[in-house]
Write a protein that binds this DNA or RNA. Structure first.
Length: 219
DNA sequence: GCGACAG
DNA sequence: ATCTTGTCGC
């Protein structure tokens, strides 16, 4: 599978993106993936959390461990972690849920970050969250600046806590950049990352360490 | 050619 | 992302 073909796949996904106002939001899901190698094999641990919105009560946590075959290549992250992530996500999904993914949405050279891919593939509203800017330019001043990619306003760079570096929010699918920003703001609880992503990150690392110690004690 | 480059 | 101790600061 060459990059040219993978690029075509991303272009196809990008063409299926919908930018619209999602309906009523009752839940918000978060998804994150951790990695580790064991006996020469690489594994991915994806954890998905489901929280009420806007109350943010933790309702469900599900994790999936899988082997990984694709390397990390900037702008091709979806081919590395989406399979495991989608498996975990499907276990917590309900109607009226917006998904928050640890990765770009439309803030991607071909408008196809992993959040967009997951959103289009599962046909649901998705938001991309990253701690580093993959591409685009930042415009404006203050704690909330616009993120522009190829002249298109796809999301925002926001300062979620003073003394912290900013995070990047972008629409993934079936949501507008402004609505994505609103949902993320409503999921902030004093930490750098919005709760759904922060919780998913925490659980993926927890399950990873438990899984590793199980493997090592079963020798 | 050079620099940039999510997780 | 991951490998890693102490350490600065709220």
């Amino acid at each position: 599978m060459n990059l040219e073909r993978l690029r075509e796949i991303q272009d196809e996904i990008a063409n299926r993106v919908t930018i619209s106002e999602p309906g009523e939001i009752e839940y918000v899901a978060g998804i994150d993936t951790a990695f580790f190698r064991y006996s020469g094999t690489e594994y991915a641990v994806s954890s998905a959390v489901l929280m009420s919105y806007p109350g943010l009560e933790l309702l469900k946590v599900e994790s999936v461990v899988d082997t990984v075959d694709f390397p990390y290549i900037p702008t091709y992250l979806m081919f590395r972690e989406s399979r495991t992530a989608i498996k975990a996500l499907k276990k917590v999904l309900r109607e009226k849920t917006v998904v928050m993914v640890d990765g770009s949405g439309l803030a991607h050279p071909r408008r196809c970050g992993i959040a967009t891919y997951i959103g289009v593939e599962l046909s649901l509203p998705a938001i991309g969250i990253t701690k580093k800017r993959l591409c685009g330019e930042v415009a404006g001043e203050g704690d909330v600046k616009k993120l522009i990619v190829d002249g298109e306003h796809v999301g925002y760079e926001i300062l979620t806590c003073r003394r912290c570096k900013p995070i990047y929010v972008s629409a993934g699918n079936m949501i507008t950049p402004d609505k994505a920003l609103e949902v993320v703001m409503n999921c902030l609880r004093g930490y750098k990352l919005p709760e759904p992503v922060r919780m998913a990150d925490k659980y993926s690392k927890k399950v990873k360490s438990e899984y590793l110690s199980d493997l090592q004690s079963s020798i």
